[in-house]
């Protein structure tokens, strides 16, 4: 009987059956992606499929902006050129001093025989768009493993640290911003070298320094920069400015709010830089006292 049905009635499995199949598939995907991290291959292949759409979604806006650039007035260009020249002069003076200092530091480090403090490879990336996902603060940028971007690279703009590359596709990659919930950056207060950790509190929320005693020496306006002790972030990159410090009688910790220095909402380009060089292995615990020969009479 089934074979005699006209083609019109042949619709394949019922919607409920399909729902069962596809929702089971979704659950499998969710568990294997969120808990087991097995889906990176599939995600990379799908990302290549999505790339034309991502390109198409951002290119027209860019074209309009670029057309606006084309219409910029000559006087504006000349003024900007002059300003940039001045800035370059100032920067090159700074750079010369930094070079001298670097040479000095290299020499001192050679004396103490510790690891070199080299800057790794850099890659200029363009922001394609912010994710629609309200749960996380992420950006999609336009370079991936084909352009040499690697997972774990630090993303900065000209003011400070913006985030970290967490997932790399062939043509795009995903950047987790420092304001993403529970994203931690080990930092140092520039004024007094106090080491602490700054926590992301979610998209568009101020960063927080948590678990510091109420009498901690952190003031409004202090600049926090990376301390480099984690081996992920190179030392000395500015991260955030302290915007408010609340010291309440009732709580055991001061509430310290900070604003990120990087303005990832404002411009299109970011720089992905590699972390510091591999550090020396951690010494095995308590090996020295155990092996030390005992003094015997």
């Amino acid at each position: 009987m089934h074979a005699n049905q006209p083609a019109f009635f042949k619709q394949g499995p019922k919607p409920l059956t399909r729902l069962m199949i596809f929702s089971a598939l979704s659950f499998i995907l969710l568990v294997s992606d969120a808990k087991l991290h097995l889906m990176d291959k599939l995600r990379q292949q799908l990302s290549v499929l999505v790339y034309p759409l991502q390109w198409l979604a951002t290119t027209p806006v860019d074209a309009v902006l670029r057309a606006g650039d084309f219409m910029t007035r000559q006087t504006q260009l000349i003024a900007e050129n002059r300003r940039l020249n001045d800035e370059r002069l100032k920067a090159s003076a700074d750079a010369m001093r930094v070079k001298a200092l670097e040479a000095e530091v290299a020499q001192l480090r050679a004396l103490t025989a510790s690891a070199p403090h080299a800057v790794g490879r850099q890659e200029l990336v363009k922001i394609l768009y912010n994710g629609r996902d309200p749960y996380s603060a992420r950006l999609i940028v336009d370079k991936g493993s084909n352009a040499g971007v690697a997972g774990g690279q630090i993303v900065i703009d000209h003011r400070g640290v913006a985030g970290q590359v967490i997932r790399v596709h062939p043509l795009t990659s995903e950047v987790r911003l420092i304001s993403d919930r529970n994203h931690l950056v080990p930092v140092m207060v520039e004024r007094n070298q106090l080491r602490t950790i700054v926590y992301g509190m979610g998209r568009n929320q101020p960063l927080q320094v948590r678990y510091m005693p109420p009498n901690v020496d952190i003031r409004e306006g202090d600049i926090l920069s990376t301390s480099g002790i984690d081996g992920l972030y190179p030392a000395g990159l500015p991260v955030a400015r302290v915007s408010k410090v609340e010291r309440q009688n009732g709580s055991a910790f001061a509430r310290i709010f900070c604003e990120p220095l990087a303005h990832f909402e404002q411009h299109n380009y970011l720089l992905a830089i590699s972390g510091p060089a591999e550090r020396a292995p951690y010494p095995e615990s308590a090996s020295a006292p155990a092996e030390a020969p005992r003094k015997t009479h």
């Binding site: 919607p15 409920l16 399909r18 729902l19 596809f22 929702s23 598939l25 979704s26 659950f27 499998i28 995907l29 969710l30 992606d33 969120a34 889906m39 599939l42 995600r43 799908l46 990302s47 499929l49 999505v50 759409l53 991502q54 994710g131 629609r132 996902d133 996380s136 992420r138 999609i140 997932r167 995903e174």
Partner: peptide, 24 residues
Amino acid sequence: GLLMDVADANYLGQHALAYSLIAY
């Protein structure tokens, strides 16, 4: 839904599950 998950950097299957349910 899978395409949205990849483009949006979500967990794979989140949009896929929701969209399958509303389609049904």
